[in-house]
Simulated assay, not measured.
Amino acid sequence: MSPTTGLKYTRDHEWIATDGDLSTVGVTGHAADALGDVVYLDLPAVGTTIKAGDACGEIESTKSVSDLFAPADGEVTEINEAAVAAPGLVNTDPFGTGWLFRMRITGTPDLMDATAYAALIEGA
């Protein structure tokens, strides 16, 4: 699954889409494919302050348990309850209904555009 233009990406395979003062966060199609069938999501609670690069949750699949890393500094404002109830949405629609949480950003690290992220996963 190719990276979507208009989003920003981390080296840990999270994506972030900013709309006004809120940003939506999810994992990339590349990460979803590598994880296999996602069966459980442990997402940060609403109101949690997160720091870019720090583990802020877990994604459990039939293959493994992987940390979810914060793509930016900020506060979690919403979690995707639909994805928590049906974690397979991360596999079937990682850039749409499989988003994980929304946050209000207070600081952003050096994120990649779609071209740079594509180069990263092609070199992996």
Rank of each mutant, 00 (worst) to 15 (best):
A70F: 05
V38I: 07
T18E: 15
N91S: 08
L7D: 02
A72E: 11
P87T: 04
R11Q: 06
I79Q: 05
G98R: 01
D37I: 11
P94D: 05
A34C: 11
V90G: 02
E14N: 02
S2R: 12
E122H: 13
V46C: 07
T115Q: 15
G20D: 14
M1C: 07
K8M: 12
L35K: 02
R11P: 01
T48D: 14
A52K: 04
S23H: 08
A124V: 13
I79S: 03
V25N: 00
A85N: 10
E122P: 13
P71F: 05
H13G: 03
L68C: 02
R11C: 01
E122W: 10
L41V: 07
A52V: 06
G98V: 03
G96I: 10
I105F: 09
H13Y: 02
V27F: 00
I16D: 02
T24P: 07
L43V: 03
E58D: 14
A124L: 15
T106I: 12
A82I: 03
M1I: 09
D54Q: 09
A32D: 01
L100M: 04
F95L: 10
L7K: 09
K63P: 08
S64Y: 07
V39G: 10
A45E: 14
T92K: 07
D67C: 00
T97K: 12
E122F: 12
S2I: 06
I16G: 01
A116S: 09
D113F: 13
A34L: 09
L41P: 05
V46N: 05
S64A: 15
P71T: 10
A83F: 00
V38F: 01
D19T: 13
S66A: 13
Y117G: 08
M112N: 09
P44R: 09
